[in-house]
């Protein structure tokens, strides 16, 4: 799945346009748009390829969707394709956010804006929790998995221990425990 594709070639420009549309159409998470565009509309990836690419993207450091853009861009148009895809993905949202930031700096202190943002934030926390709970529900029903999750949640969420230290210990331990349990 990772070598530049033999059959179809897609131009960097096409990649740029496609990823721009995905990112601008993706509110509150771009995953559904990325799937729809890559698998259903352009058919650059089939379902299996997409699942594998997404899994690789999750395993590598950084934003998952950025990694997916890099891989898909490279696959179809080499280095220029990777740059085009990533630029398409982030350029427009960053411009929108710069405008949003300027607006916030201007009117963010006004009472109605603060009230609206408080309500939005309370709802957005629910969204973030729902994502976490869905991830938890997708774990295998084994005590080992839930014990690891509980330890990490207590360390980071409740005790607020430093992230780097906890992660550097928890990640290898978790991988080892689950590998042993196969």
């Amino acid at each position: 799945m990772v070598a530049p594709a033999e059959a179809a070639r897609v131009s960097p420009w096409q990649l740029y346009v496609a990823f721009s549309r995905m990112s601008l159409g993706g509110f509150g998470g771009v995953f559904p748009m990325v799937y729809r565009t890559l698998v259903e509309r352009t058919r650059w990836l089939n379902h299996t390829d997409f699942a594998a690419t997404w899994a690789f993207g999750q395993m590598l450091p950084g934003s998952v969707v950025n990694n997916v853009a890099t891989m898909v861009g490279y696959r179809y148009a080499g280095a220029r394709g990777a740059i085009a895809a990533v630029l398409g993905l982030i350029m427009w949202p960053v411009l929108v956010l710069l405008a949003v930031g300027t607006a916030y700096a201007t009117v963010g202190d006004l009472a109605p804006v603060r009230r609206a943002l408080t309500g939005m934030s309370a709802a957005a926390v629910g969204l973030s929790m729902a994502t976490g709970i869905k991830m938890l529900r997708n774990l295998p029903r084994r005590w080992r998995h839930f014990a690891i999750a509980a330890c990490v949640f207590i360390a980071i969420g409740l005790l607020r221990l430093p992230f780097l230290g906890v992660f550097i210990i928890a990640a290898p331990v978790s991988v080892w425990l689950i590998w042993r349990a196969r």
Partner: peptide
């Protein structure tokens, strides 16, 4: 191997 850690971090 990292799935439980990821879920816990998101919940945190």
């Amino acid at each position: 191997g990292l799935a439980p850690v990821s879920a816990a971090l998101m919940l945190s």
